[in-house]
């Protein structure tokens, strides 16, 4: 009894106002790379913040910093009364599978992986479609006929980015050369900007003048290298155009923010359903970024051709092949 009392006191001490009266208690668990990676995790953060702003509901959050934490982090959230756990990143799939089975009353959302369970909603994206669009932009902006790609961890998910990118570039210029490098084979590859920068430099040295980074926080090194060498980079996941205005050609938007926001909103409004959602260009799940920072880099002709291609992907006139299947 006393123990329980202390536990409740501890919780009361920590829970700020707002969360208590709402029936939905959301929690977000960011993956390695960190909440402020300016890319994948930050997109998720922005989605959660938007939900918090619009519905005035606090959410709990946690950043994974080593591989063994994932499962306990979810358990901790559930113990703290969370009834919606949003797990960011495919690496949490195993932990979600286990915890969803053990906590049938808790709803889970997972980004970038599919977990089949009656209380899990999975979001995956057609990264190849968005990458196709920025691949076209890269090929049109390139003067050397060579473009580059720096991936994070070497997994099918990231190869899917490269595959779509190459298809887009070749659609504009069939002779174009596409250099590809992956940063590593472990999750450490998501947070190694130094190595990302080196890989980008080597591609620039080989003649590339546009390099696309799909590597989480590692991509920041790629963008920096492009800015230092006065070449162009393409950002990923979040809109990264503002990081080096005039040096970031565009960003491949992967609307992790929308996915996180929708998941939290649906749970809050009691419209939440389980299932697997796959978002592409047609669903506005992926796209490309055009704002005042990269406006001078995108000519009217480029914009027209990319917008046309986007329409054609939606209408089915262009099919972008995914890396798998």
């Amino acid at each position: 009894m006393i123990v329980r009392g202390i536990a409740v006191a501890g919780l009361a001490l920590a829970v700020s106002t707002g969360a208590a009266q709402a029936q939905s208690v959301p929690a977000v668990i960011f993956d390695m790379g960190g909440k402020f990676d300016k890319s994948f995790n930050e997109a998720a953060y922005n989605g959660a913040e938007r939900f918090k702003r619009e519905f005035n509901v606090e959410y709990r959050e946690f950043e994974i910093s080593n591989e063994a934490q994932r499962e306990q982090a979810q358990v901790n959230m559930v113990r703290r009364g969370a009834n919606l756990v949003v797990a960011i990143g495919f690496a949490q799939a195993a932990a979600v599978t286990k915890n969803a089975a053990e906590n049938p009353n808790v709803r889970f959302c997972i980004i970038d992986s599919v977990v089949n369970a009656p209380n899990v909603r999975s979001y995956t994206f057609k990264e190849h479609e968005g990458s196709y669009l920025v691949g076209m932009a890269a090929a049109m902006a390139s003067k050397t006929g060579k473009v580059g790609f720096v991936g994070g961890m070497d997994i099918p998910l990231i190869r899917n980015f490269a595959f779509g990118y190459e298809q887009g570039a070749k659609a504009v210029n069939p002779q174009i050369e596409v250099f590809q490098n992956m940063t590593g084979t472990t999750p450490a590859a998501w947070r190694d900007p130094t190595r990302g920068g080196e890989l980008a430099r080597s591609q620039f040295d080989r003649g590339a003048d546009v390099v696309y980074a799909a590597a989480g926080a590692t991509g920041l090194g790629v963008l920096q290298a492009a800015a230092d060498l006065n070449r162009l980079a393409i950002g990923v996941d979040s809109n990264q155009n503002h990081l080096h205005p005039g040096k970031v050609l565009t960003s491949m938007l992967k609307r992790v923010d929308t996915a996180v926001y929708t998941c939290m909103k649906d749970a809050h409004e009691n419209k939440w359903t389980a299932g697997a959602l796959r978002l592409g260009v047609a669903e506005d799940g992926v796209g490309w970024a055009l704002d005042q920072n990269n406006r001078p880099l995108i000519s009217a002709d480029m914009e027209r051709r990319i917008t046309e291609a986007r329409q054609k992907i939606i209408s089915g006139e262009i099919t972008v092949r995914p890396y798998q299947q």
Binding site: G10, L13, Q72, R79
Partner: peptide
């Protein structure tokens, strides 16, 4: 002081936490 309280609670607050 609040942080210390959470630290102690987090380690020994209930049987679950003691288990961890």
């Amino acid at each position: 002081v609040a942080a210390l309280k959470v630290l102690v609670w987090g380690a020994f607050g209930d049987t679950d936490l003691i288990g961890f």
